[in-house]
Design a protein around this nucleic acid. Structure first.
Lengths: 336, 336
DNA sequence: CCTTCCTGTCGAAGCGCTTCGACGACCTGG
DNA sequence: CCAGGTCGTCGAAGCGCTTCGACAGGAAGG
């Protein structure tokens, strides 16, 4: 049962009849090795099922080949997107031969410090960055390579990636305005998210308002809680106060379903009476009835891009300070 | 800017005026150290901001203090529960001074092999285990300490944890029968989940049917897809074919909201015409209207318990082969 | 034909930590 | 008062890997 002690590089060297360092150079490609030797070593590696010991490698090379993914896991986050994101980070990292250490934000800045100081990871990916995030100054100070998902207020010296939420908001307004709607509304995140100063919510709103203005369309916006009853009354109030609203943008994944339910209850048909555009993942939009015209949050792209940037930084390649990912609008049945 | 090379154990030893090994013993507690020396060392540790180098520690001690969390990230999984689970795993692991490496199942068995062979992790947690999971034999073979979330068909030599889904199903039936309902129905996971032979769906169903039988109540069950339209027709068909059904159990998180919408569309009032019990996280149940009587999937408990078991195994403590977590029914407004 | 320069390989020196055996110093009991 | 224990500490030997400098041997250049 007990495996016969996993093979070490010395075993491989002996098996191939070469020096330990030669094996290392074959595996890392850092020095030229003749084709025949290389092949012999590779064969031995396979024969013995050799995998380098991660600790030893990290110790000697000062590279752990692990990156940290710091997820928030706080109230008001939308989980499915997060999960998609995490998946794409792991997958992409593996393509670069790196693994992913999962951290939650509740260990706080100390967690970052610990992980950096112990050389457990080579760099980190931080999600759900706020405008005035306490981790940001620490990050600058630590000097660990890092990439942020989201934009803090002061971007100096950082590398940030995000969906271009302003464009997303604008895209929704453009679409509705293009369909001839003259008065449109945005139902956003729960108010707590705005209070926290999470950038993406504000940027969506700004983009929406700006685009509406550009088209000469009246725009109203309000936060949106996530229980059915609260969504219901929010929608009702909105319609009462602004009876002319015929286009609705929903930027709140948990509430999307409830908004449709609320409209049904109020006797509003979609899209005949009200057109609805959601900013959410495609599966949620497709699962709704009618299927929702939506702007996709490209979680996978963001994850992939973030990892790429981090890898570039690890290799000391220069990277742009900000990367904005283009949103994509998919027209389905909920707008006309 | 560049930190002055992070402190090593040698630095601490020098600063405290003791031998390196003494520092190590203070930190690990594996040998008796006088109170005064201990204090001096601890002070130096704090003064220098010392954190042991993870690689070196792993190399020397053969313990990485990292566990792997293998998530599925496949279709039909319900993400929020998964996320809660992941959070509780990370948090609990940290309490045991361990970190968590995130792996997706798509690297497959090779991923497990790699991670085990490279000693990157000391043990693993596998989620979403199927009845005939290909990873199970490998796991037995590798001899890495591991804990499974979910039950494969052959449990021999493994350690498994899960919610007692049979009890959960039974609890729902008990509750409805107790309220006097004589004909009840279970709306389950999408059919693909049953086809995959995922244990939890089948066990819920079995528990539900068994309990209904025990109470002399008629039970009907069917799988349930996740789009609003499909849910709608499933509910309509169900009601047409079994007009006597007055109690509904929904074991499908994504469909819960749609079921309520469907009943609303069909003119059925909840709970006056139909009582509804959901098996889902509390926040989903609370967010619905009316707030749903629900059986909680105690993702946090499962995560915590799984980590505890794994830690016990790492310390060579004996652990039970199966651990079933008791479900808890919360009565809200949707049943009468 | 001899220097100069690659190319391919090797040996050895760490990386920072844990752990084992050794060994004074001190206590205890006969 | 000394044999036999403890207790607290130290030094050194690795753990498995990377990487540096050295060095044969052959190619190229004068």
């Amino acid at each position: 049962m007990s495996s016969p002690r996993t093979a070490t590089i010395a075993d491989v060297a002996k098996h191939a009849g070469v020096a330990v360092s030669t094996v290392s150079y074959v595996l890392s490609g850092k020095r030229a090795i003749s084709a025949t030797t290389r092949q012999r070593v590779l064969d031995s590696v396979r024969a013995l099922g050799y995998h380098p010991n991660a600790g030893a490698r990290a110790l000697a090379s000062k590279r752990a080949k692990v990156i940290a993914l710091v997820l928030p896991l706080r109230a008001g986050m939308n989980l499915p997107v997060l999960m998609q994101f995490a998946t794409s980070v792991v997958t992409t990292a593996r393509q670069y031969d790196h693994d992913v250490l999962l951290m939650t934000a509740d260990e706080g800045p100390d967690g970052l410090r610990r992980v950096a100081a112990s050389a457990l990871v080579d760099g980190m990916l931080l999600m759900d960055v706020e405008m005035h995030d306490p981790r940001v100054p620490l990050l600058r100070h630590l000097g660990e390579p890092s990439v942020l998902i989201g934009f803090p207020a002061d971007r100096e010296g950082l590398t940030c990636v995000d969906l271009d939420f302003a464009r997303a908001g604008a895209l929704c307004a453009d679409h509705l305005a293009g369909l001839g709607h003259r008065e449109i509304a945005l139902l956003g995140a729960p108010s707590v998210v705005y209070e926290r100063g999470t950038g993406f919510a504000e940027r969506t709103l700004a983009g929406f308002v700006e685009a509406a203005g550009r088209h000469g369309v009246r725009a109203v916006t309000r936060p949106c809680e996530e229980s059915f009853d609260e969504v219901c009354s929010a929608v009702r109030d909105l319609m009462d106060e602004h009876p002319g609203v015929s286009g609705l943008v929903v930027h709140n994944e948990a509430a999307v379903g409830h908004v449709l339910g609320a409209l049904r209850v109020l006797g509003k048909r979609v899209p005949e009476d009200v057109s609805v555009v959601a900013i959410c993942p495609d599966d949620v939009a497709e699962r709704a009835s009618p299927a929702l015209t939506s702007v996709l949050v490209p979680a996978e792209d963001v994850g992939r891009q973030a990892v790429r940037l981090l890898m570039a930084k690890l290799d000391d390649h220069p990277v742009p300070q900000s990367t904005l990912l283009e949103p994509r609008l998919t027209i389905r049945e909920s707008t006309q």
